[in-house]
Design a binder for these strands. Structure first.
Lengths: 215, 215, 215, 215
DNA sequence: GATGAATGAGTATTCATTCAT
DNA sequence: GATGAATGAATACTCATTCAT
């Protein structure tokens, strides 16, 4: 059965979105090499030929998929720092963003794809890291650095502190993506992140009174 | 040139080890689907045909590889709990084990393979998780639970505390495996784990009474 | 952008001519199999769909192209014989016709197509041969035969003499079509044909005086 | 049914020859684009996979085929000039070589392939032309030039004379390759070449003195 | 009538697996 | 036991043809 034609530019964009969504599923489940263009096409309810009207090759589809997903996330990450509340507020905000990201799953799925196909697409890993990962960690470490100069935060390498802040989010992402589908106990994201952030606040945030700090 | 025949049982085992090591490299770098039996064979200095004298199929080689690597790790993990020192000692020990694991890279590589091919081998993920991950987390959480009943450790869900304990190790593993080859700043494992464990000690360990500690 | 409708019969014919011209270029450059309908269409400034309003298939377009080009040539060839001048005049006329044909290139291009796709279209080769080649050779051989009975021309198989007359034209056509585009020294058609015809005249034409002929 | 294995280097060469022979047939009949690797393989009584053990791609097979056929011909052509007999002897020798070439058909088939796929492989045309065609024509024109300086041959551009010498051979090749399979009257090569060479001798060869000739 | 989006049969190429040597 | 030549199923990609707009 023939698909309705996408004559309008708008329809074409929609069609492209459908294909990218289907591609995300298939690349995510199978990895680049094992993903079949046929499967991506039929999951998007189009024929193989139509796929090639929108993307000139498997590789181009793959690369564009990564970019489409990754791009909007950059700003979200950056948004967190343009906000001059207290460190505590920022940690709370981070918790919220992290939760959304984990629930939405797009970024975790992307992460899984990147991990899987890092060997075959080293440039992609570089791009993704520079665009998202380095940026996010840099943003976080700047927040911490600023808080440290305010005496709001305890001392310690800001980059390593940012890594420790982020680690449980990565852990949760992998858990959900890799282990839960195979029957693992589900992680309670809310609870885990709350515990994580609470503990961090306890160690990081300097209480105003000098004497309390004197451990 | 023909390879020497592996007449002795011992030689056979050595040959198998070589193949598995080669397979680990190739599966790790390419993923299951993109890995070529030819490459695994030639990296092990044997012919393609010989490969099939030791493993009946690519899939069987893959499965056996996972098991061969995973099995010995189970005991290492379990060893940590058979030791009734203080929580602080145990956290130090964990730090040491974690560092070794990250330096040795076998387990991180296995982790990458599992993540990559989880879609194609769900049973394998289950096995790996039950054998290693669940066991490790359960062990950690038991340590914490015990410490909590000793009043040595603050309250909080022991499983989630174990997850937070483990998270930076996972993070470091992924960083080293995925990002460092593509040019990321290298993680200082020692320093990061030290910071992590120190912070954890600060929040978790209950200082009983000042005088007891001072002995 | 939509093309103007070819409402008038005249427009239709023009459109068809355009398509055939475009098809000639493409079939000539690529051969039947490698020629793309898309390219033929866009070179004719119409859409792929429109092509099918004029020709029901690639094959039909091909066949019709051959016929369209070949047909008018038949009469040109035949025209040469309906002319009762001397053999020398006829050879001069042949030289002129040959030169025009080589300069115009349509027939040489057709020849290249026929050679290339003879395997796939044997009936076409038959048609083309019967319509053009056999006819031309027969015409030539009749001229020669007639001249022989006039004692204007030396003896010898008229068909073979016709073939030898034509051979340098075929040679020149191939040279121009195949070799010149890849950098070969250009043939000087005028000069080559003049030499050819002069030499032929020397051997063929019987000078009036009996004693000179007595070799 | 599996083919016997080519273990010895010699067997491999034989296998390669078989494939090239099959490829010649198929490329000759269909042209490069329409030729199917499957057909080449099955005509050589091997599987498609085996083809790729000997040639890495269709294009490489094509190029190697051209070279394999063309290379040995170069020397044959050159051989004609290393011989300091009279021009008449050389023309007779040429007649003989030309006949052999036409009967053997390998070079005519190659010529047809070159003509057909000249558009897609311009470098190949260049190579073939430089290796064979230019060389042959240059050889012929040198023979003529030398004969002209000996006063053995009449004046005229040696290159054009060489082209006229060669033209009927090209004509015959095309006739046999393209027209005879579709039912054309067969050319009598012997007779046509004899007539051609005789006529050439008449115009070209300068009879020194009547009495010398009369011995 | 004209368009070009959609289709799917057709083809080059790869690679796990077999098995004659 | 070891080898690597042979196989053919599997898969990315192309392009003639159709037909909704």
């Amino acid at each position: 059965m023939k698909m309705k034609r996408a004559i309008q530019q708008q329809d074409k964009e929609t069609r492209k979105k459908n294909i990218l969504q289907s591609a995300l599923d298939v690349f995510f489940n199978k990895g680049f090499k094992a993903a079949k263009m046929d499967e991506i096409a039929s999951n998007a309810n189009i024929s193989k030929g139509t796929l090639y009207l929108y993307f000139s090759s498997k590789e181009q589809l793959f690369v564009e998929l990564i970019q489409q997903i990754a791009s909007p996330k950059v700003n979200q990450v950056e948004a967190m720092v343009n906000n001059d509340s207290t460190l505590e507020d920022k940690l709370n905000l981070f918790k919220q963003h992290a939760k959304n990201m984990l629930v939405d799953q797009q970024l975790p799925k992307l992460m899984k794809i990147i991990i899987s196909d890092s060997g075959a697409f080293p440039e992609l890993v570089t791009t993704y890291r520079e665009m998202i990962v380095d940026r996010a960690l840099k943003t976080m470490s700047q927040i911490i650095k600023r808080a440290q100069s305010n005496k709001e935060c305890r001392q310690g390498d800001p980059i390593e502190l940012a890594q420790l802040l982020v680690a449980p989010v990565i852990f949760s992402a992998i858990w959900r993506i890799v282990f839960e589908p195979s029957g693992a106990t589900k992680i309670n994201i809310d609870s885990l992140l709350a515990l994580h952030i609470n503990m961090l606040k306890q160690v990081l945030i300097v209480k105003d009174r000098v004497d309390e700090d004197a451990i």
